[in-house]
Design a protein around this nucleic acid. Structure first.
Lengths: 375, 375
DNA sequence: CTGTTAGCGCTTTCAC
DNA sequence: GTGAAAGCGCTAACAG
């Protein structure tokens, strides 16, 4: 059947198909392009059979070289170890497969240099569009893409000075939902724990929603805690100091922590464990991002779930629309969050001893010298 | 309309560089290919400057079209939602970036059809090699690649009838390590809980190691439990039945579960929770795959950690060696596991009441009608 | 409807 | 050392 050349992988070319089918390359090309109205039935049939018989697969490299239809989409991910990124990737990959596109994946590891480098790599393969989820620093190369009207869809966060479409969570709404839930459950002293706000719009959005919701309750106290999740023990330190501060302020309220994303959630859970603090007994806990283990820790961790799969899927479809030439103005697609209620935010009504700043303090020993993660 | 190309930024071509530098395309090409010994210093300098000035980036599509050096590597992943796959992907992506390659990622979702389809897609982009981690069903297309001497490295599991290189865990050793640990901790009735062995070599390897280790202890009882992690509540049912069976057998031993991978671990943890069973009090638990949440559940889950990053990284480097033409015989690179000891396998010596089959049974109610996952 | 003729951007003989 | 020319596999004018 198949001719083996000495080169190993033998590629059947359009020329071979044309020859064997007794037609011109053009006709085969038209067949590939789906221009059936320009092909007679017998010709079409003949080509179809030959392609099947030879097991011909057109080279996307060659197709792409000509006009630009590489059917390639580049995806830049800030951190492949972040479950959020993977979940979004899952949806994006599915959408690509559905539409006959292939994903080129680059992990930037939150590193500027690698981001730039990845952008260059993707460009060199003539990707038709870009899905972008990464740190907001040094966005110059991105801006250039914007000026060139290159199709880009942003994931989760804006980039200053670029008018790209965005797909993500409705962060303000989500944070409000979260805060209202905690308030309703009887918590009065709430800390939003986030990675550095810097210029990250999604984090800022969550803070805005949080602040907004807290503002309606002057009898309650809200505070934003910035943490570095890569620095072992840092979250524990910050959280401990927060507790101490609340107690020093003479607060008699119930304390809850609102984790800004999955990475923070993990560090908080670890930190609380290291301090032997339990939820909801000692402190309430609500986390952004539903994770596989959310139901498992303690009596279960309440979460704000993002429709991550949909975010990825939607983003690709939006990108495809842009690729196909739509020139409309910038569009923002914000999907809805979902509250998943578990033990970590159980109501503290009627349990005045629970989750009090003062009662926590007695449990916290002075900060240890060693990092507090692990056990 | 606009005269910009589809790709937006007007692409600088090698011809432009050559013209502006006052040299031939050939020389520029040589420069790109690093053939400096065939270039005079002034020429080289001139080209270098021009490239920088124009911001020229060669088109990989065009380069690939000619000889085949696309600098593209395809990766087929069985399940992108499996943390193992992501962790390996992380290492693989890093290695690619290090060597100037780019990853094309396809998620097959354990689906034969999509696997075949993805293989075709990857082929159509002339990837130089393939990293393959997927279900062992219908391997015909893979075999063809083997016959064509196409560079492929298998991840984690063999494929029958193919002599590709393999990078993965030393499963036999890992399972032995795990089993010996459980035995040493005083557990006597151990069940290895795995997804269907089918033809998956890694699972078989783990079972082999398990059986081997158990065989040395005729006073202990080992059993393999196959579960379907996608069927809600199935793990709970199987585990429950196991407990009941052990009790019926009149066993007075201490029971432990050995989870065959991360997916199973999660389901087991969920199942135990749904049955209100705790570890190590009611049952010992040791899981393959170290996960972010392993320290968090209960008193921490003991795990067998795989060097996932290294597996991915090594696999790519091995693939690169093959791509660069090495023709040596099939090679298997099995990396070492690491035991991480936590509360879930705490010693039960001196606690005769703990982890006994008989004591568990009293806690298990008859199987519920509804799936037992969740709460 | 169908085929002929040019290239796409780059690498690679093969001359000079 | 350097360059001209001939393609790689495919698509896209432009005829018939």
């Amino acid at each position: 059947m198949r001719q083996h050349t000495k080169t190993g992988t033998d590629r059947v070319t359009i020329a071979q198909v044309a020859r064997e089918a007794g037609v011109s390359k053009t006709s085969v090309s038209r067949y590939l392009g789906g221009e059936f109205d320009a092909l007679s039935a017998p010709l079409r049939d003949q080509i179809s059979k030959t392609i099947a018989r030879l097991g011909y697969q057109p080279s996307q490299m060659a197709r792409g070289l000509k006009g630009g239809r590489t059917r390639l989409i580049g995806m830049l991910v800030a951190d492949i170890l972040n479950p959020y990124s993977v979940a979004v990737l899952h949806g994006a990959e599915a959408a690509c497969q559905k539409h006959g596109y292939t994903l080129m994946l680059c992990n930037t590891g939150n590193d500027e240099a690698r981001e730039k480098q990845s952008l260059a790599a993707l460009h060199s393969y003539s990707v038709e569009g870009l899905l972008f989820n990464t740190q907001g620093r040094n966005v110059t190369p991105l801006r250039e893409l914007g000026q060139a009207a290159f199709p880009v869809v942003l994931l989760d966060r804006h980039v200053e000075g670029c008018d790209f479409d965005l797909v993500g969570l409705d962060n303000v709404k989500a944070a409000q939902l979260a805060t209202h839930h905690l308030l309703a459950q009887g918590y009065t002293d709430i800390a939003l724990v986030v990675q550095p706000l810097f210029g990250v719009s999604s984090r800022q959005g969550r803070q805005a929603g949080f602040l907004q919701a807290m503002a309606q309750r002057s009898d309650c106290h809200g505070e934003t805690l910035e943490v570095d999740v890569d620095q072992p023990g840092h979250v524990a330190t910050v959280v401990r100091e927060y507790f101490l501060r609340r107690a020093a302020a003479g607060s008699s309220g119930r304390v809850a922590l609102l984790a800004g994303n999955g990475m923070v959630s993990l560090q908080i859970a670890l930190a609380l464990q290291s301090m032997s603090l339990r939820f909801p007994d000692d402190v309430g806990l609500l986390c952004f991002d539903e994770l596989a283990w959310s139901p498992l820790v303690g009596s279960g961790i309440s979460t704000i779930e993002q429709p991550t799969y949909d975010i990825g899927f939607t983003a690709i479809e939006r990108l495809l629309v842009r690729i196909h030439g739509e020139r409309s103005v910038r569009m923002e697609m914000l999907l809805d969050p979902r509250l998943i209620c578990r033990g970590s935010t159980a109501s503290v009504d009627g349990h005045p001893q629970r989750a009090l700043a003062s009662s926590i303090v007695s449990k916290i020993r002075p900060a240890p010298m060693a990092p507090a993660s692990g056990s």
